[in-house]
């Protein structure tokens, strides 16, 4: 079972690579922000998978809750900044 989670997290990391392509080369800030928010969700899941692999999921879950709550602030502030300045 551990091997399965390990392979799954490596596969998830490969997906992160594709999102990172959109994040680094995507035209404009908005595409980059979309890519980065996708990376954020995947990060949350990989954190939990690592928690299962290390068998201390009660420790790792706090970081995941922090991400689920905080991930949204950065995007909202970025959106508000773009909206007030008016240049995408």
């Amino acid at each position: 079972m551990n091997d399965f989670f390990l392979i799954l997290s490596v596969g998830m990391c490969v997906l992160v690579l594709f999102c990172l392509y959109r994040g680094t080369f995507g035209p404009g800030v908005l595409n980059r922000a979309a890519g980065i928010s996708a990376i954020g969700t995947k990060t949350l899941i990989i954190l939990l998978l690592m928690g299962v692999i290390y068998d201390r999921i009660d420790m790792f879950i706090d970081i995941s809750i922090a991400y689920a709550l905080l991930n949204f602030i950065g995007t909202v502030v970025l959106a508000k900044y773009i909206e007030t300045t008016g240049e995408a």
Binding site: T24, I39, F60, D62, A66, Y67, G74
Partner: peptide
Amino acid sequence: VILGAYSFLMCLLWTEMAAIDVAFTEA
């Protein structure tokens, strides 16, 4: 924005090295 992604990956790196407190701070 890319620095945000950097911090995500850095947090994953800390977690992977089992330094949970540092990872939490980074997050």
